[in-house]
Design a binder for these strands. Structure first.
Lengths: 226, 226
DNA sequence: ATGCAAAGATGCACGCCGTGCAAAATTAAT
DNA sequence: ATTAATTTTGCACGGCGTGCATCTTTGCAT
Protein backbone atom coordinates (compact mmCIF):
# COMPACT_ATOMS: atom_id res chain seq x y z
CA UNK A 1 0.00 0.00 0.00
CA UNK A 2 2.43 2.60 -1.20
CA UNK A 3 1.32 6.07 -2.18
CA UNK A 4 4.40 6.81 -4.18
CA UNK A 5 4.28 10.43 -5.17
CA UNK A 6 0.80 11.84 -4.80
CA UNK A 7 1.30 15.51 -5.31
CA UNK A 8 -0.10 16.87 -2.06
CA UNK A 9 0.39 13.99 0.35
CA UNK A 10 3.12 13.12 2.84
CA UNK A 11 5.06 10.71 0.64
CA UNK A 12 8.57 10.87 -0.76
CA UNK A 13 12.02 11.10 0.73
CA UNK A 14 13.27 13.12 3.62
CA UNK A 15 13.94 16.08 1.39
CA UNK A 16 10.40 16.44 0.15
CA UNK A 17 9.01 16.01 3.63
CA UNK A 18 11.30 18.64 5.13
CA UNK A 19 10.49 21.11 2.40
CA UNK A 20 6.78 20.71 2.94
CA UNK A 21 7.26 21.06 6.68
CA UNK A 22 9.28 24.23 6.28
CA UNK A 23 6.77 25.72 3.91
CA UNK A 24 3.88 24.90 6.21
CA UNK A 25 5.75 26.27 9.21
CA UNK A 26 6.42 29.54 7.43
CA UNK A 27 2.82 29.92 6.27
CA UNK A 28 1.43 29.13 9.69
CA UNK A 29 3.85 31.44 11.45
CA UNK A 30 2.98 34.20 9.04
CA UNK A 31 -0.75 33.86 9.60
CA UNK A 32 -0.48 33.63 13.37
CA UNK A 33 1.82 36.61 13.63
CA UNK A 34 -0.37 38.63 11.29
CA UNK A 35 -3.50 37.73 13.25
CA UNK A 36 -1.86 38.98 16.40
CA UNK A 37 0.02 42.10 15.33
CA UNK A 38 -1.56 43.01 12.00
CA UNK A 39 -0.05 41.93 8.71
CA UNK A 40 1.71 45.22 8.00
CA UNK A 41 3.71 45.03 11.20
CA UNK A 42 5.03 41.54 10.54
CA UNK A 43 8.39 41.55 8.76
CA UNK A 44 9.88 38.73 6.75
CA UNK A 45 12.52 38.52 9.45
CA UNK A 46 9.93 37.88 12.14
CA UNK A 47 8.25 35.16 10.14
CA UNK A 48 11.56 33.47 9.40
CA UNK A 49 12.58 33.59 13.02
CA UNK A 50 9.28 32.10 14.15
CA UNK A 51 9.71 29.26 11.67
CA UNK A 52 13.35 28.74 12.59
CA UNK A 53 14.94 29.47 9.21
CA UNK A 54 16.95 32.30 7.76
CA UNK A 55 15.40 35.23 5.99
CA UNK A 56 17.03 34.15 2.77
CA UNK A 57 15.33 30.79 3.03
CA UNK A 58 11.99 32.48 3.48
CA UNK A 59 12.43 34.04 0.08
CA UNK A 60 13.35 30.68 -1.35
CA UNK A 61 9.83 29.53 -0.50
CA UNK A 62 7.81 32.67 -1.18
CA UNK A 63 8.33 35.19 -3.93
CA UNK A 64 6.86 37.89 -1.77
CA UNK A 65 6.35 38.49 1.89
CA UNK A 66 2.61 38.84 1.25
CA UNK A 67 2.49 35.41 -0.34
CA UNK A 68 3.13 33.88 3.05
CA UNK A 69 -0.15 35.36 4.27
CA UNK A 70 -2.05 34.43 1.14
CA UNK A 71 -0.90 31.03 -0.12
CA UNK A 72 -1.74 29.03 2.94
CA UNK A 73 -2.24 25.73 1.12
CA UNK A 74 -0.12 25.52 -1.97
CA UNK A 75 -1.64 22.45 -3.56
CA UNK A 76 -5.33 22.79 -2.81
CA UNK A 77 -5.90 23.56 -6.46
CA UNK A 78 -4.22 20.37 -7.60
CA UNK A 79 -6.34 18.32 -5.22
CA UNK A 80 -9.49 19.85 -6.60
CA UNK A 81 -8.53 19.20 -10.18
CA UNK A 82 -7.91 15.58 -9.28
CA UNK A 83 -11.32 15.41 -7.63
CA UNK A 84 -12.97 16.69 -10.80
CA UNK A 85 -11.22 14.05 -12.85
CA UNK A 86 -12.16 11.32 -10.39
CA UNK A 87 -15.83 12.31 -10.21
CA UNK A 88 -18.42 9.73 -11.34
CA UNK A 89 -19.07 9.92 -15.06
CA UNK A 90 -22.79 10.22 -14.42
CA UNK A 91 -22.44 13.76 -13.13
CA UNK A 92 -22.72 16.77 -15.39
CA UNK A 93 -19.67 19.06 -15.44
CA UNK A 94 -21.44 21.55 -13.23
CA UNK A 95 -22.37 18.88 -10.71
CA UNK A 96 -18.90 17.39 -10.72
CA UNK A 97 -17.45 20.80 -9.97
CA UNK A 98 -19.96 21.49 -7.26
CA UNK A 99 -19.14 18.25 -5.46
CA UNK A 100 -15.37 18.61 -5.84
CA UNK A 101 -15.49 22.08 -4.38
CA UNK A 102 -17.81 21.10 -1.60
CA UNK A 103 -15.41 18.32 -0.63
CA UNK A 104 -12.44 20.68 -0.60
CA UNK A 105 -14.34 23.23 1.44
CA UNK A 106 -15.46 20.61 3.92
CA UNK A 107 -11.85 19.57 4.35
CA UNK A 108 -10.82 23.15 4.97
CA UNK A 109 -13.34 23.41 7.77
CA UNK A 110 -11.40 20.78 9.68
CA UNK A 111 -8.38 23.02 10.11
CA UNK A 112 -11.02 25.48 11.18
CA UNK A 113 -8.91 27.51 13.57
CA UNK A 114 -6.12 28.34 11.15
CA UNK A 115 -8.53 29.18 8.34
CA UNK A 116 -10.46 31.42 10.65
CA UNK A 117 -7.29 33.32 11.46
CA UNK A 118 -6.46 33.42 7.78
CA UNK A 119 -9.85 34.92 6.95
CA UNK A 120 -9.42 37.50 9.68
CA UNK A 121 -6.01 38.51 8.38
CA UNK A 122 -7.31 38.95 4.84
CA UNK A 123 -10.31 40.87 6.04
CA UNK A 124 -8.14 43.19 8.12
CA UNK A 125 -5.99 44.27 5.18
CA UNK A 126 -7.88 44.57 1.91
CA UNK A 127 -4.58 44.62 0.14
CA UNK A 128 -4.08 40.96 0.94
CA UNK A 129 -7.66 40.10 0.17
CA UNK A 130 -7.14 41.39 -3.34
CA UNK A 131 -4.06 39.25 -3.73
CA UNK A 132 -5.90 36.22 -2.49
CA UNK A 133 -8.79 36.74 -4.87
CA UNK A 134 -6.44 37.17 -7.77
CA UNK A 135 -4.47 34.09 -6.84
CA UNK A 136 -7.59 31.94 -6.85
CA UNK A 137 -8.56 33.29 -10.23
CA UNK A 138 -5.19 32.32 -11.62
CA UNK A 139 -5.98 28.71 -10.80
CA UNK A 140 -9.13 28.77 -12.86
CA UNK A 141 -7.30 28.47 -16.14
CA UNK A 142 -5.90 25.10 -15.15
CA UNK A 143 -9.25 24.07 -13.79
CA UNK A 144 -10.85 24.97 -17.10
CA UNK A 145 -8.45 22.64 -18.88
CA UNK A 146 -9.37 19.79 -16.58
CA UNK A 147 -13.05 20.42 -17.23
CA UNK A 148 -12.43 20.44 -20.95
CA UNK A 149 -10.60 17.13 -20.66
CA UNK A 150 -13.45 15.63 -18.69
CA UNK A 151 -15.99 16.78 -21.25
CA UNK A 152 -13.95 15.41 -24.14
CA UNK A 153 -13.54 12.04 -22.49
CA UNK A 154 -17.33 11.74 -22.41
CA UNK A 155 -18.08 12.92 -18.88
CA UNK A 156 -21.78 12.77 -19.64
CA UNK A 157 -23.30 12.88 -23.12
CA UNK A 158 -25.44 15.92 -22.35
CA UNK A 159 -29.07 14.96 -22.49
CA UNK A 160 -30.52 18.16 -23.90
CA UNK A 161 -28.78 21.15 -25.37
CA UNK A 162 -29.54 24.80 -24.81
CA UNK A 163 -33.13 26.02 -25.29
CA UNK A 164 -32.61 28.19 -28.32
CA UNK A 165 -30.00 25.97 -29.93
CA UNK A 166 -28.41 28.14 -32.61
CA UNK A 167 -26.17 27.55 -35.59
CA UNK A 168 -23.29 25.09 -35.74
CA UNK A 169 -20.94 28.02 -35.52
CA UNK A 170 -22.52 29.14 -32.29
CA UNK A 171 -22.39 25.66 -30.83
CA UNK A 172 -18.72 25.28 -31.68
CA UNK A 173 -17.86 28.56 -30.05
CA UNK A 174 -19.83 27.58 -26.99
CA UNK A 175 -17.77 24.41 -26.74
CA UNK A 176 -14.58 26.43 -26.47
CA UNK A 177 -16.16 28.87 -24.14
CA UNK A 178 -17.89 26.42 -21.88
CA UNK A 179 -15.06 24.99 -19.74
CA UNK A 180 -13.63 28.42 -19.16
CA UNK A 181 -16.96 29.88 -18.20
CA UNK A 182 -17.79 26.96 -15.97
CA UNK A 183 -14.52 27.18 -14.08
CA UNK A 184 -14.95 30.90 -13.65
CA UNK A 185 -18.53 30.67 -12.50
CA UNK A 186 -17.72 27.90 -10.05
CA UNK A 187 -14.97 29.99 -8.54
CA UNK A 188 -17.42 32.84 -8.33
CA UNK A 189 -19.84 30.59 -6.51
CA UNK A 190 -17.28 29.77 -3.85
CA UNK A 191 -16.28 33.34 -3.43
CA UNK A 192 -19.81 34.67 -3.23
CA UNK A 193 -20.80 31.97 -0.78
CA UNK A 194 -17.91 32.85 1.47
CA UNK A 195 -18.71 36.53 1.33
CA UNK A 196 -22.37 36.05 2.02
CA UNK A 197 -21.71 33.59 4.77
CA UNK A 198 -19.23 35.91 6.45
CA UNK A 199 -21.63 38.84 6.17
CA UNK A 200 -24.44 37.09 8.09
CA UNK A 201 -22.63 34.46 10.04
CA UNK A 202 -25.36 33.12 12.27
CA UNK A 203 -27.92 31.90 9.81
CA UNK A 204 -27.09 28.68 8.05
CA UNK A 205 -24.34 26.15 7.53
CA UNK A 206 -21.82 27.25 4.96
CA UNK A 207 -22.32 24.29 2.68
CA UNK A 208 -26.03 25.06 2.47
CA UNK A 209 -25.29 28.56 1.26
CA UNK A 210 -22.91 27.08 -1.25
CA UNK A 211 -25.52 24.72 -2.62
CA UNK A 212 -28.09 27.46 -2.80
CA UNK A 213 -25.75 29.57 -4.87
CA UNK A 214 -25.23 26.72 -7.27
CA UNK A 215 -28.97 26.24 -7.51
CA UNK A 216 -29.44 29.90 -8.41
CA UNK A 217 -26.79 29.61 -11.09
CA UNK A 218 -28.29 26.47 -12.55
CA UNK A 219 -31.65 28.24 -12.69
CA UNK A 220 -30.19 31.04 -14.83
CA UNK A 221 -30.20 33.74 -12.17
CA UNK A 222 -33.95 34.36 -12.16
CA UNK A 223 -35.03 37.83 -11.12
CA UNK A 224 -35.82 38.01 -7.42
CA UNK A 225 -39.35 38.48 -6.11
CA UNK A 226 -40.28 42.07 -5.34
CA UNK B 1 -23.68 72.61 -22.95
CA UNK B 2 -21.85 72.38 -19.68
CA UNK B 3 -21.01 69.06 -18.06
CA UNK B 4 -20.44 70.44 -14.63
CA UNK B 5 -19.09 67.71 -12.38
CA UNK B 6 -19.65 64.27 -13.83
CA UNK B 7 -17.56 62.02 -11.65
CA UNK B 8 -15.21 60.69 -14.27
CA UNK B 9 -15.22 63.58 -16.73
CA UNK B 10 -13.08 66.66 -17.13
CA UNK B 11 -15.08 68.97 -14.89
CA UNK B 12 -14.10 70.80 -11.72
CA UNK B 13 -11.39 73.27 -10.90
CA UNK B 14 -7.85 73.41 -12.08
CA UNK B 15 -6.70 71.27 -9.16
CA UNK B 16 -8.92 68.35 -9.99
CA UNK B 17 -8.03 68.57 -13.64
CA UNK B 18 -4.30 68.65 -12.99
CA UNK B 19 -4.51 65.73 -10.62
CA UNK B 20 -6.36 63.66 -13.17
CA UNK B 21 -3.86 64.64 -15.82
CA UNK B 22 -0.91 63.67 -13.65
CA UNK B 23 -2.49 60.37 -12.75
CA UNK B 24 -3.25 59.60 -16.37
CA UNK B 25 0.23 60.60 -17.43
CA UNK B 26 1.79 58.31 -14.87
CA UNK B 27 -0.43 55.38 -15.81
CA UNK B 28 0.19 55.84 -19.50
CA UNK B 29 3.92 56.23 -19.05
CA UNK B 30 4.00 53.11 -16.93
CA UNK B 31 2.16 51.03 -19.49
CA UNK B 32 4.20 52.28 -22.43
CA UNK B 33 7.51 51.75 -20.69
CA UNK B 34 6.44 48.30 -19.52
CA UNK B 35 5.30 47.34 -22.99
CA UNK B 36 8.69 48.30 -24.36
CA UNK B 37 11.14 47.08 -21.74
CA UNK B 38 9.12 44.60 -19.71
CA UNK B 39 7.40 45.57 -16.50
CA UNK B 40 10.10 44.21 -14.19
CA UNK B 41 12.75 46.47 -15.71
CA UNK B 42 10.74 49.65 -15.28
CA UNK B 43 11.50 51.44 -12.03
CA UNK B 44 9.30 53.93 -10.27
CA UNK B 45 11.98 56.47 -11.03
CA UNK B 46 11.70 55.87 -14.77
CA UNK B 47 7.93 56.21 -14.71
CA UNK B 48 8.10 59.42 -12.72
CA UNK B 49 10.68 60.88 -15.05
CA UNK B 50 8.61 60.01 -18.11
CA UNK B 51 5.59 61.71 -16.56
CA UNK B 52 7.61 64.72 -15.45
CA UNK B 53 7.07 64.43 -11.70
CA UNK B 54 9.21 63.45 -8.74
CA UNK B 55 9.40 59.91 -7.47
CA UNK B 56 7.80 60.99 -4.24
CA UNK B 57 4.81 62.30 -6.17
CA UNK B 58 4.48 58.99 -7.95
CA UNK B 59 3.89 57.34 -4.61
CA UNK B 60 1.35 59.98 -3.74
CA UNK B 61 -0.76 58.68 -6.62
CA UNK B 62 -0.08 54.96 -6.43
CA UNK B 63 0.38 52.88 -3.33
CA UNK B 64 2.60 50.50 -5.24
CA UNK B 65 4.70 50.61 -8.34
CA UNK B 66 2.65 47.75 -9.74
CA UNK B 67 -0.54 49.72 -9.34
CA UNK B 68 0.62 52.04 -12.08
CA UNK B 69 0.56 49.12 -14.50
CA UNK B 70 -2.74 47.77 -13.23
CA UNK B 71 -5.07 50.65 -12.40
CA UNK B 72 -5.17 52.26 -15.80
CA UNK B 73 -8.57 53.89 -15.39
CA UNK B 74 -9.28 54.71 -11.79
CA UNK B 75 -12.95 55.60 -12.07
CA UNK B 76 -14.27 53.13 -14.58
CA UNK B 77 -16.03 51.37 -11.75
CA UNK B 78 -17.84 54.52 -10.69
CA UNK B 79 -19.01 55.15 -14.25
CA UNK B 80 -20.41 51.66 -14.47
CA UNK B 81 -22.28 51.97 -11.21
CA UNK B 82 -23.84 55.18 -12.45
CA UNK B 83 -24.85 53.45 -15.67
CA UNK B 84 -26.60 50.72 -13.71
CA UNK B 85 -28.52 53.31 -11.72
CA UNK B 86 -29.46 55.21 -14.87
CA UNK B 87 -30.65 52.15 -16.78
CA UNK B 88 -34.31 52.07 -17.88
CA UNK B 89 -36.56 50.64 -15.19
CA UNK B 90 -37.96 48.13 -17.67
CA UNK B 91 -34.75 46.10 -17.65
CA UNK B 92 -34.15 43.25 -15.27
CA UNK B 93 -31.09 43.59 -13.03
CA UNK B 94 -29.18 41.16 -15.19
CA UNK B 95 -30.05 43.05 -18.36
CA UNK B 96 -29.22 46.38 -16.81
CA UNK B 97 -25.81 45.05 -15.83
CA UNK B 98 -25.20 43.54 -19.22
CA UNK B 99 -25.91 46.81 -20.99
CA UNK B 100 -23.91 48.92 -18.56
CA UNK B 101 -20.90 46.69 -18.95
CA UNK B 102 -21.26 46.51 -22.70
CA UNK B 103 -21.28 50.30 -22.84
CA UNK B 104 -18.16 50.55 -20.71
CA UNK B 105 -16.37 47.94 -22.77
CA UNK B 106 -17.34 49.64 -26.01
CA UNK B 107 -15.86 52.84 -24.63
CA UNK B 108 -12.65 51.07 -23.74
CA UNK B 109 -12.30 49.85 -27.30
CA UNK B 110 -11.94 53.43 -28.43
CA UNK B 111 -8.67 53.89 -26.62
CA UNK B 112 -7.84 50.64 -28.30
CA UNK B 113 -4.10 51.12 -28.61
CA UNK B 114 -3.42 51.81 -24.96
CA UNK B 115 -5.65 48.97 -23.81
CA UNK B 116 -3.92 46.62 -26.16
CA UNK B 117 -0.59 47.56 -24.66
CA UNK B 118 -2.07 47.17 -21.23
CA UNK B 119 -3.29 43.67 -22.02
CA UNK B 120 0.12 42.75 -23.40
CA UNK B 121 1.85 43.97 -20.27
CA UNK B 122 -0.44 41.99 -18.01
CA UNK B 123 -0.08 38.91 -20.13
CA UNK B 124 3.70 39.19 -20.09
CA UNK B 125 3.94 39.13 -16.29
CA UNK B 126 1.34 36.90 -14.62
CA UNK B 127 2.14 38.62 -11.38
CA UNK B 128 0.44 41.77 -12.64
CA UNK B 129 -2.43 39.84 -14.16
CA UNK B 130 -3.22 38.44 -10.75
CA UNK B 131 -3.24 41.89 -9.26
CA UNK B 132 -5.51 43.16 -11.98
CA UNK B 133 -7.99 40.35 -11.49
CA UNK B 134 -8.05 40.92 -7.77
CA UNK B 135 -8.52 44.64 -8.19
CA UNK B 136 -11.56 44.15 -10.36
CA UNK B 137 -13.05 41.77 -7.85
CA UNK B 138 -12.66 44.35 -5.13
CA UNK B 139 -15.01 46.64 -7.06
CA UNK B 140 -17.76 44.06 -7.09
CA UNK B 141 -18.79 44.74 -3.53
CA UNK B 142 -19.72 48.31 -4.36
CA UNK B 143 -21.41 47.17 -7.53
CA UNK B 144 -23.48 44.72 -5.52
CA UNK B 145 -24.71 47.56 -3.32
CA UNK B 146 -25.81 49.54 -6.35
CA UNK B 147 -27.68 46.53 -7.68
CA UNK B 148 -29.37 46.06 -4.35
CA UNK B 149 -30.41 49.71 -4.37
CA UNK B 150 -31.82 49.37 -7.85
CA UNK B 151 -33.80 46.30 -6.91
CA UNK B 152 -35.18 47.95 -3.79
CA UNK B 153 -36.27 51.04 -5.70
CA UNK B 154 -38.40 48.78 -7.89
CA UNK B 155 -36.12 48.27 -10.88
CA UNK B 156 -38.54 45.78 -12.34
CA UNK B 157 -41.22 43.92 -10.37
CA UNK B 158 -39.88 40.52 -11.39
CA UNK B 159 -42.47 38.79 -13.52
CA UNK B 160 -41.90 35.21 -12.46
CA UNK B 161 -39.85 33.87 -9.61
CA UNK B 162 -37.55 30.87 -9.60
CA UNK B 163 -38.88 27.53 -10.87
CA UNK B 164 -38.90 25.63 -7.63
CA UNK B 165 -39.87 28.55 -5.41
CA UNK B 166 -39.11 27.41 -1.87
CA UNK B 167 -39.95 28.61 1.59
CA UNK B 168 -40.12 32.21 2.72
CA UNK B 169 -36.84 31.70 4.53
CA UNK B 170 -35.14 30.61 1.35
CA UNK B 171 -36.55 33.53 -0.59
CA UNK B 172 -35.36 36.00 2.03
CA UNK B 173 -31.87 34.58 1.95
CA UNK B 174 -31.87 34.70 -1.81
CA UNK B 175 -32.72 38.40 -1.63
CA UNK B 176 -29.59 39.08 0.36
CA UNK B 177 -27.56 36.82 -1.80
CA UNK B 178 -28.83 37.99 -5.13
CA UNK B 179 -27.11 41.35 -5.65
CA UNK B 180 -23.79 39.95 -4.54
CA UNK B 181 -24.08 36.95 -6.78
CA UNK B 182 -25.21 39.03 -9.72
CA UNK B 183 -22.31 41.44 -9.40
CA UNK B 184 -19.86 38.57 -9.10
CA UNK B 185 -21.27 36.69 -12.05
CA UNK B 186 -21.32 39.77 -14.22
CA UNK B 187 -17.68 40.41 -13.44
CA UNK B 188 -17.00 36.80 -14.28
CA UNK B 189 -18.75 37.27 -17.58
CA UNK B 190 -16.50 40.15 -18.53
CA UNK B 191 -13.39 38.32 -17.48
CA UNK B 192 -14.28 35.11 -19.27
CA UNK B 193 -15.23 36.98 -22.41
CA UNK B 194 -11.92 38.77 -22.44
CA UNK B 195 -10.00 35.55 -21.91
CA UNK B 196 -11.88 33.67 -24.56
CA UNK B 197 -11.63 36.52 -26.99
CA UNK B 198 -7.89 36.87 -26.45
CA UNK B 199 -7.38 33.14 -26.88
CA UNK B 200 -8.95 33.01 -30.35
CA UNK B 201 -8.69 36.52 -31.55
CA UNK B 202 -9.76 36.22 -35.15
CA UNK B 203 -13.23 34.86 -34.82
CA UNK B 204 -15.85 37.33 -33.72
CA UNK B 205 -16.35 40.80 -32.38
CA UNK B 206 -15.71 41.06 -28.70
CA UNK B 207 -19.16 42.31 -27.82
CA UNK B 208 -20.71 39.28 -29.50
CA UNK B 209 -18.70 36.98 -27.28
CA UNK B 210 -19.78 39.00 -24.31
CA UNK B 211 -23.46 38.69 -25.19
CA UNK B 212 -23.09 34.99 -25.79
CA UNK B 213 -21.62 34.53 -22.34
CA UNK B 214 -24.53 36.36 -20.82
CA UNK B 215 -26.95 34.22 -22.76
CA UNK B 216 -25.28 31.07 -21.44
CA UNK B 217 -25.54 32.37 -17.91
CA UNK B 218 -29.18 33.32 -18.30
CA UNK B 219 -29.86 29.81 -19.61
CA UNK B 220 -28.44 28.27 -16.44
CA UNK B 221 -25.21 26.94 -17.94
CA UNK B 222 -26.77 24.05 -19.87
CA UNK B 223 -24.50 21.11 -20.51
CA UNK B 224 -22.78 21.35 -23.88
CA UNK B 225 -23.59 19.02 -26.78
CA UNK B 226 -21.34 16.00 -27.05
C1' DA C 1 -3.69 92.87 -8.10
C1' DT C 2 -2.44 91.27 -3.32
C1' DG C 3 -2.40 88.58 0.59
C1' DC C 4 -3.83 84.44 2.83
C1' DA C 5 -5.14 79.74 3.67
C1' DA C 6 -5.51 75.10 1.86
C1' DA C 7 -3.67 71.49 -0.86
C1' DG C 8 -0.27 69.39 -3.55
C1' DA C 9 4.74 68.57 -4.94
C1' DT C 10 9.36 67.81 -3.61
C1' DG C 11 13.69 66.39 -1.24
C1' DC C 12 15.66 63.65 2.26
C1' DA C 13 16.42 59.96 5.35
C1' DC C 14 15.45 55.56 6.75
C1' DG C 15 14.01 50.70 6.98
C1' DC C 16 12.23 46.71 4.70
C1' DC C 17 11.90 43.93 0.48
C1' DG C 18 13.80 40.79 -2.84
C1' DT C 19 17.83 38.77 -5.53
C1' DG C 20 22.47 37.14 -7.24
C1' DC C 21 26.34 34.83 -5.72
C1' DA C 22 29.40 31.89 -3.35
C1' DA C 23 30.36 29.15 0.65
C1' DA C 24 28.71 25.84 4.09
C1' DA C 25 25.61 22.20 5.49
C1' DT C 26 22.57 18.40 4.62
C1' DT C 27 20.87 14.41 2.06
C1' DA C 28 21.26 10.68 -1.42
C1' DA C 29 23.73 7.17 -3.66
C1' DT C 30 27.85 4.26 -4.62
C1' DA D 1 33.74 6.91 3.33
C1' DT D 2 33.58 9.42 -0.71
C1' DT D 3 31.26 11.88 -3.89
C1' DA D 4 27.46 14.24 -6.15
C1' DA D 5 23.20 16.73 -5.78
C1' DT D 6 20.30 19.69 -3.32
C1' DT D 7 19.28 23.03 0.14
C1' DT D 8 20.37 26.56 3.51
C1' DT D 9 22.70 30.53 4.75
C1' DG D 10 25.34 35.02 4.88
C1' DC D 11 26.45 39.05 2.45
C1' DA D 12 25.98 42.85 -0.44
C1' DC D 13 23.29 45.74 -3.17
C1' DG D 14 19.55 48.26 -5.46
C1' DG D 15 14.69 49.26 -5.60
C1' DC D 16 10.45 50.05 -2.88
C1' DG D 17 7.54 52.75 0.17
C1' DT D 18 6.81 56.20 4.04
C1' DG D 19 7.14 60.06 7.53
C1' DC D 20 8.39 64.62 7.82
C1' DA D 21 9.64 69.33 6.87
C1' DT D 22 9.67 72.64 3.22
C1' DC D 23 8.42 74.89 -0.85
C1' DT D 24 5.27 75.76 -4.67
C1' DT D 25 0.76 76.13 -6.59
C1' DT D 26 -4.21 76.92 -6.40
C1' DG D 27 -8.60 78.91 -4.62
C1' DC D 28 -10.69 82.78 -2.62
C1' DA D 29 -11.65 87.20 -0.62
C1' DT D 30 -10.75 91.72 -0.47
Amino acid sequence: MHVVSEKGAAGGGLRERKKRATRAALAEAAVRLAAEHGAEKVTAEAISAAAGVSVRTFFNYFDTRDDAFVVIDADAGARMRQAVLDAPAALSPLEALRDAMAAELAEAEQQHELWQLHARVLHASPHLLVRSLGAHLADETELAEVIAARIRSGGRPASVSAPGAGSDEERRRALDLYPRLLAAVAGTAVRTSVEHWCARQEEAAFLDVFREVFALLAAGLPAPPA
